[in-house]
Design a protein around this nucleic acid. Structure first.
Lengths: 186, 186
DNA sequence: CGCATCTTGGAACGATCAGTACAAGATAGT
DNA sequence: ACTATCTTGTACTGATCGTTCCAAGATGCG
């Protein structure tokens, strides 16, 4: 009991993000979220609002944490469009290999479970995918890809990113995921 | 009320399969399953057992329905490994475009939601993925691919298959999905 | 017809769900 | 130190979850 918050909001948000990450939206019950954040129900609802709002804030935190990694990887200079793809997927592979953060990817998991989200959540997921796609396309053009090639490669790289998350979730090894990424960057 | 079953078991199973397909395991409530199959609760449980068993039977029916399509597409003869990949992904694209069967793919969705399944369900999903992978590898070897190339391409084609389902679920157009498939078969 | 067997819909179960209410405790300003 | 304000844990709500139970009705066999 306290008069000032007894937890770090961002750290709690990270905990919530990991729960959504691990379990997906439907299976991320409030009980699991309280356990994952270390907060009581009162603090959870008082700070973040309902489950849907907490999910969206988790998505935002996800973006704040990981988009810079992708941006940096894409910022170049790159010798070829293939190098851009390799750099992008390299970030994904590193993330999947991170022992602090279990396999999978909040965004991808969300994309696969859109029917479980409400309208606001769905819109945010779609918007984030569009953002990543735009970042990729721009970097590919900067690396010398033509308009058409940039669009095509951005789409396919996004696709590979999604497949890496799903395969990781399905138990494929890091070596196998690396192979998939390497072929995509070829 | 009846003494003999008043519904077709296989047709009911198809209905259940579509519900799991559309909603994923967690969001496929018994109410949705009774609506999707047209059965009452008593008939559902009496015929198929609990939700987990119904899911596994839906997976079996899925395999019985769609594996032959993939087998036929893979049966060749094919002029090159790339043709095998194109044939395989063509089946997936056709399935996604089928208006009778909403976008997405039960198996892929299941792979992305493994934590929601019990041990038996998880094992069956993994086994089905392994089966498809084996089918692909064999067909690729038959099309002249080397041992290493066959393994690599089978893995990547499986990856593309998964990504197609996720992207479709995320609202990407049929044209975009075709592009992804075409690049993968290149 | 009479009886056993099976099917069926609906009622009901305990568990869990997301979300709310609130009293008790801790702080900050005065 | 007093008070207003905020935070926190817990008890609680109504809804929904998966599941079980059962009486009523339909069938097949003698």
């Amino acid at each position: 009991m306290a008069g000032r918050k007894q937890f770090d909001v961002d750290e709690a948000l990270r905990g919530a993000m990991l729960v959504f990450w691990r379990w997906g939206y439907s299976e991320a019950s409030i009980d699991r979220l309280t356990e994952g954040t270390g907060l009581g129900r009162g603090s959870l609802y008082g700070t973040f609002g309902d489950k849907s709002a907490l999910f969206r804030k988790s998505l935002e935190r996800y973006a704040q944490t990981y988009h810079p990694l992708y941006e940096q990887a894409l910022s170049g200079p790159h010798s070829s469009p293939g190098a851009v793809v390799a750099a992008y997927l390299g970030v994904t592979l590193n993330r999947i290999a991170d022992p602090d953060v279990p396999d999978g990817c909040l965004l991808t998991m969300s994309a696969a479970q859109l029917p479980a989200l409400d309208a606001e959540g769905q819109a945010m997921v779609r918007a984030m995918i569009a953002t990543l796609r735009g970042m990729l396309e721009q970097a590919l053009r900067a690396a010398g890809a033509g308009e058409r090639e940039a669009a095509e490669l951005a789409l396919c790289t996004l696709a590979t990113n999604k497949s890496l998350a799903v395969l990781s979730r399905a138990g494929f090894s890091g070596e196998e995921l690396s192979t998939v990424a390497a072929v995509a960057a070829r």
